[in-house]
Design a protein around this nucleic acid. Structure first.
Lengths: 225, 225
DNA sequence: CAGAATCTAATCCATAAGGAGTATAGCTTT
DNA sequence: AAAGCTATACTCCTTATGGATTAGATTCTG
């Protein structure tokens, strides 16, 4: 079984070279290529489920929508997809922003040379995001030079009894907050959208609110998530 | 010309195995071995200058004086020496502390397997500190999970670069997230509800979402508030 | 066993929201 | 002066949401 890969780069020749490198490895299938962030997101929407890439190799500087924004939105819309930055830029801000945006790995084009495929495969075996040695070193130095500091925050205890919601209601609440519609929630839980709606109305009553947005606020305020 | 290496580990067999591995590479000369931090510092004092190690492989948990303290003192006394942690511990606190103490690299005993010598040699060619993939991944996650934050350039940068929204759009976004309807937002800003709607649609396009709930989720995730 | 929750599902209705398009005025940039 | 962006505002249409009510099935509980 092979792994679906997406490639986002504004230079067509880069895409092709990379694609050939990956195909040569014969573990990988390139199911999506795009020239920038917008292009990528649009193509993701239209893509068949079984072709959804498990890994997206993302360049950073691109016209239209850059890689950081694409990763931000992409990692939100497709949490299962691992975004790996593949770029020539190694300045600290770019690294930091990309990581914050949700990048799972960060590879340098020149450093990684021919073994991008190897590093991606290693990622599958270890579960750890692939990072070029030079980048790892930069991050380490950022920590050393006090540009990064450890902020202790021991996640407040999750409130177990959130307004006496039933298990089902909690389940639905979670999906509701994620932005799903009645119908979509129903599909996930294998029940009717009408039923979901009924549950949601019950939730509203218990929480004394009357819209999804209010629910989200309340949930966030109470550190439900 | 070969490179002088120091090995600090409380387990004698570890020292020997490691030593043999390095000697097998024949780039390296092991000129110092020690069983703990204190032992290491004492031997460094007595060592001939030409035998001073360029690299010290340092275990972390040792009786007497541990690796972190040894690195702290050692990197102060011998700034030219590169301290590379070589341990089985991969918990975040240990990693962070070791790096802060001045570690130039961080290798995991099990992960690095036989190629510790390779990674050390690579360090010489690239000038970058050797870091095990698993450790790099851990650090990356620490950054991602806000346990590490950029201190010199705080919150402002994150907020300002929220998807290139215009001032007006940001203004409307805030009210939108509060749960107001188009009409209500319009009333607050003294513009038409229709106009608000147009702005909101523009925001959706820029953020690549298509509902208020998704916007809120994204905004919260990216710490817009 | 009987009653109480709970989960399921449906209907009807009014309103809000999402989508797409058009248009104009003001301001900045080239 | 022309091109581009932003803010403003409108229309038409479809779909989703919130609100209220009813009701069968299942499970829990006193």
């Amino acid at each position: 079984m092979s792994v679906n890969i997406g490639i986002v780069d504004d230079v067509a020749s880069n895409r092709n070279i990379l694609k050939n490198k990956l195909l040569g490895h014969n573990h990988f299938e390139v199911t999506l290529t795009a020239a920038n962030g917008k292009d990528f997101l649009k193509k993701m929407q239209l893509l068949d489920l079984e072709l959804l890439p498990a890994v997206v190799l993302m360049d950073l500087e691109m016209p239209g929508m850059d890689g950081v924004d694409a990763i931000t939105t992409g990692s939100f819309l497709y949490p299962a997809v691992k975004f790996v930055v593949l770029t020539i830029f190694d300045d600290e801000d770019k690294i930091f922003n990309a990581i914050k945006a949700g990048a799972f790995g960060y590879l340098l084009k020149d450093e990684s040379g021919e073994n991008i495929a190897d590093m991606l495969w290693q990622m599958y075996e270890s579960g750890a995001g692939p990072i070029s040695p030079g980048i790892a070193h930069k991050i380490l130095q950022m920590v050393q030079h006090n540009e990064l500091t450890l902020t202790h925050k021991p996640e407040a205890a999750v409130q177990k009894t959130f307004f006496n919601l039933t298990e089902r209601e909690n389940e639905i609440l979670e999906l509701l907050v994620e932005g799903l519609m009645y119908r979509e929630i129903g599909a996930r839980l294998f029940i009717s959208g009408n039923t979901v709606k009924k549950h949601v109305m019950n939730i509203y009553n218990k929480l004394h609110v009357n819209s999804r947005i209010q629910v989200i606020h309340l949930a966030h305020k109470k550190k439900f998530f």
